[in-house]
């Protein structure tokens, strides 16, 4: 991030203190969505903001909040631009941000392996008899469990810390979270999934 003047650095910091409207424990700085602040003249400012997900509706509330904070700081004209590139990643969440998510009861995203979803089994509801010579995933070398979760770093329960957790649904209360359950303390919890 390029910040030119002291005023720009100050405004960037100020915009960074705005809480995320959906996850108010996180600030925009900790979420990693503020890209740049440019001051034009003495009291006009342009802010570059990047969405977490392309369709994330929180971005509009973020823009309004940034405008309010910067106007209260004496800026007459505040323009918030949405920038898509480079694409936001959960790796942009700061270490403090991750810790706050955990304290809030949300398992933080694991840091980058390969991007993308972790294939998960949907559970052993195979009630249809399989043809005796059918070549299933078992034969394809996947393993006895039809579609196993590749064991990378486990998603830990934010409540008890157990690594023994299972996926309930890939999509939870928002697009950026998955719903999981701890097999240790039996508590369900949200997981900020890797993007």
């Amino acid at each position: 991030m390029v910040t030119g003047t002291a005023l720009e650095a100050e405004l960037l910091e100020l915009a960074g203190t705005v809480p995320d409207p959906e996850l108010p424990v996180l600030t925009l700085r900790e979420l990693g969505v503020l890209r740049a602040v440019r001051v034009h003249g003495t009291d006009a400012v342009e802010v570059d903001l990047t969405p977490t997900y392309t369709g994330c509706p929180a971005i509009e509330a973020m823009s309004v909040d940034i405008e309010r904070v910067l106007r209260a700081h004496g800026m007459r004209e505040v323009t918030v631009r949405t920038v898509l590139s480079p694409a936001w990643s959960t790796d942009d969440i700061t270490p403090e941000g991750r810790e706050k998510l955990r304290e809030f009861g949300i398992a933080p995203p694991r840091t980058r392996r390969a991007a993308g979803p972790v294939p998960l089994p949907l559970g052993p509801t195979r009630t249809r008899p399989t043809a005796p010579n059918a070549t299933t995933a078992t034969d394809a070398g996947t393993s006895a469990a039809p579609y196993p979760e590749p064991r990378t770093e486990p998603v830990r329960c934010p409540h008890c810390g157990s690594a023994d957790t299972e996926l309930l649904s890939r999509f939870s209360s928002t697009a950026c979270k998955a719903l999981r359950r701890c097999l240790g303390c039996r508590e369900p919890f949200d997981h900020f999934k890797e993007l």
Binding site: T54, K193, L195
Partner: peptide
């Protein structure tokens, strides 16, 4: 390219959901 680079990560989850 900018949109695709962002959306491809989201669509990966859609594809996985459909496959599963």
């Amino acid at each position: 390219a900018p949109l695709a680079a962002k959306a491809v990560k989201e669509v990966a989850y859609h594809r996985d959901h459909a496959e599963q």
